[in-house]
C-alpha cells in the first residue's frame, strides 16, 4: 500500500519520464533508420575504398560502449564550440550510435535478397532511385523486420543510460523517487513494468508490419 501511494504521489515525474523515454525512442527510430538506409544505399553505390571506409567506421562505432560514446559527445561537442542541453546531446548520441547498428542490420540482411531481382529491375530500365525504392528496400525491410525490432529494444535500453548525463527519463524518475522517499521497491518495479510494456508494443508493431509486408 505504502509503495503504491508513493508512486501515485510521484505520478507526474513518472509521466514526464515516460514521455521523455518515448520521445528518445521515437525520434531515434525516425531518424536513424532512414539515415542507415541512406548510408546503405550510398555505400553500396560508391567505389570499394569508400565503402570499406564506411564499414570500418560503423564497425568501430559498434565496439564502443554506448555510455562512453555519450560521455564523448557530451564533453567533446563543447570543445568543438557546440554546447547542447543534456536531452539534445543524449538524442544526438542515440541517433548517431544506433545508425551504425541499423546500417549493419541492412548490410547483413541484404545478402538474403535474391540478386536476380536487382538484375531484373536493371533489365527493365529502373533508375537507381526507383531500384532502391521499389525493389531493394521493400525486400530489405521485410527481411530485417525482426532484427529492427530487436534493435529498437536496444535503443530503449540505451536510452536509460542517458540518465547519467542527467536526461530525465523513466530510470531517472525511479531513482529520484526512490532516493527522496527512501522506498526503492515500487518505483523501480514501475520503471521495469513501463520498459516491459514499451517492449511489448514494439514487438506487436513489428509483427503487424511483418504481416503487412508478407501479404
Amino acid at each position: 500500500m505504502n509503495g503504491l501511494a508513493i508512486v501515485w504521489d510521484a505520478k507526474d515525474i513518472f509521466f514526464s519520464g515516460a514521455l521523455t523515454t518515448l520521445a528518445l525512442i521515437g525520434v531515434c527510430l525516425a531518424l536513424s533508420i532512414p539515415m542507415a538506409m541512406l548510408a546503405y544505399m550510398f555505400l553500396s553505390e560508391s567505389p570499394t575504398p569508400l565503402a570499406k571506409f564506411g564499414r570500418l567506421t560503423a564497425d568501430s562505432l559498434r565496439c564502443v560502449p554506448f555510455l562512453l560514446f555519450a560521455y564523448l559527445v557530451y564533453y567533446g561537442l563543447p570543445e568543438l564550440g557546440l554546447r547542447l542541453e543534456p536531452f539534445a546531446a543524449g538524442l544526438f548520441t542515440l541517433v548517431f550510435y544506433n545508425t551504425a547498428y541499423f546500417f549493419e542490420i541492412f548490410r547483413t540482411q541484404a545478402q538474403a535478397i535474391p540478386p536476380e531481382t536487382r538484375v531484373a529491375a536493371e533489365a527493365f530500365g529502373f533508375s537507381r532511385i526507383k531500384l532502391y525504392q521499389r525493389i531493394v528496400f521493400p525486400q530489405l525491410l521485410s527481411a530485417a523486420a525482426p532484427m529492427l525490432g530487436n534493435q529498437a529494444i536496444m535503443v530503449m535500453k540505451d536510452s536509460a543510460l542517458l540518465m547519467i548525463i542527467t536526461v530525465e527519463d523513466i530510470t531517472f524518475a525511479a531513482n529520484f523517487v526512490s532516493a527522496n522517499q527512501f522506498s526503492p521497491f515500487a518505483p523501480f518495479v514501475l520503471a521495469m513494468v513501463l520498459y516491459w510494456l514499451f517492449s511489448l508494443s514494439i514487438d506487436l508493431t513489428v509483427s503487424r508490419l511483418n504481416r503487412n509486408f508478407t501479404k
Binding site: M163, T171, W196, F198
Partner: peptide, 18 residues
C-alpha cells in the same frame, strides 16, 4: 520476457537498492 527489455542501469539500481 522481463529481462529482455530491462536496461542494465535500471537492473543495477533495482538489485542494489531493493
Amino acid at each position: 520476457s522481463v529481462m529482455r527489455p530491462t536496461p542494465m542501469i535500471t537492473l543495477c539500481l533495482f538489485v542494489f537498492f531493493v
